[in-house]
C-alpha cells in the first residue's frame, strides 16, 4: 500500500469499484425494502389508531419507549433468534422505520381540517371512503415527511447491521477502520450521506408530484 493514507483517493474507488457497487446496492435495496414493508404495516395500524383515538395514545406511547432502545441492543436481542444476516437487520430497520412512520401518519390524520372532513361527511362518504378519499390525501404532506425522516434514518441505521454481518456500506467502514484504510472509511461514509440525500430528494419530488393542489401555495 502507498505509505500516505489519503482520505479521498480515486485509486481506491477505481480499484475497488466492484466491491463498492455491491455494498451500495446492498445498502440501497435493504433500505427500500425496509421502508416499503414498514409503510405497508404502518398505514393500516395508523388507520386503526385513527378510528380508535384511545388506541392512538397507546400506540404512540409504546412506540416512543421502543424507539429509545438502541439499535445495537435490538440487533443483540434479535440475533439469537433470527440469526446472523439480512433478516435480522431487516427486522430491526423495519421496526424503527415503522415507529417513525406511525407517529407521523397518526399526527397527519389528526391534523386534517375538521371542516374538510365535515364536508366529506356531508357528501355522504362512509368512514372508509372518508379516510381514503379525504383524510389520507389531506394528511399526505405529513405522510411524506414521515417517509423522509424514516428513510434518512434507515440509511444511517443500516450501517449498524455490521454487527450481524450485513451492514451494506457499514461493512466497508468497519473493514476500512480495522485495516487502517482511511479512503475506505471516508468513501463509505460519503456514499451513505449521498444515498440518504438522493432518496430524500426523490421522496420530496414524489410528494410535490402527488399533491398538485398544494403547488403555488407554498414555496
Amino acid at each position: 500500500m502507498d505509505r500516505s493514507n489519503p482520505w479521498l483517493s480515486w485509486a481506491y474507488i477505481h480499484d475497488n469499484w466492484g466491491d463498492i457497487a455491491f455494498r451500495l446496492s446492498q445498502h440501497t435495496s435493504l433500505t427500500i425494502e425496509a421502508i416499503v414493508i414498514a409503510f405497508a404495516i404502518a398505514l393500516p395500524l395508523a388507520a386503526a389508531a385513527h378510528f380508535a383515538p384511545r388506541l392512538a395514545g397507546l400506540i404512540v406511547g409504546t412506540s416512543s419507549v421502543f424507539y429509545t432502545i438502541p439499535s445495537l441492543a435490538l440487533f443483540g436481542i434479535l440475533a439469537p433468534y433470527t440469526g446472523i444476516g439480512r433478516t435480522t437487520v431487516l427486522i430491526g430497520l423495519v421496526s424503527y422505520a415503522l415507529l417513525a412512520l406511525l407517529r407521523n401518519i397518526v399526527t397527519g390524520l389528526q391534523g386534517v381540517d375538521p371542516n374538510v372532513v365535515d364536508a366529506g361527511r356531508g357528501l355522504g362518504y362512509g368512514r372508509i371512503k372518508l379516510l381514503w378519499l379525504v383524510e389520507l390525501p389531506n394528511a399526505f404532506p405529513s405522510v411524506i415527511a414521515g417517509l423522509r425522516v424514516a428513510t434518512v434514518t434507515t440509511v444511517a441505521l443500516a450501517t449498524v447491521g455490521v454487527v450481524v454481518g450485513f451492514g451494506g456500506l457499514g461493512q466497508l467502514m468497519f473493514r476500512g477502520f480495522y485495516r487502517g484504510y482511511n479512503a475506505e472509511v471516508a468513501t463509505a461514509g460519503l456514499l451513505c450521506v449521498a444515498l440518504a440525500l438522493v432518496l430524500d430528494l426523490g421522496l420530496l419530488i414524489l410528494g410535490k408530484v402527488m399533491t398538485p393542489w398544494l403547488r403555488g401555495t407554498r414555496g
Binding site: 444511517a156 443500516a158 449498524v160
Partner: peptide, 16 residues
Amino acid sequence: SRAIPTLALLTLFASG
C-alpha cells in the same frame, strides 16, 4: 446530522 451515520463518524474519528 440525521443523514450522517453515527458509525461513519465513529470510524472516521477513530481512524483520524
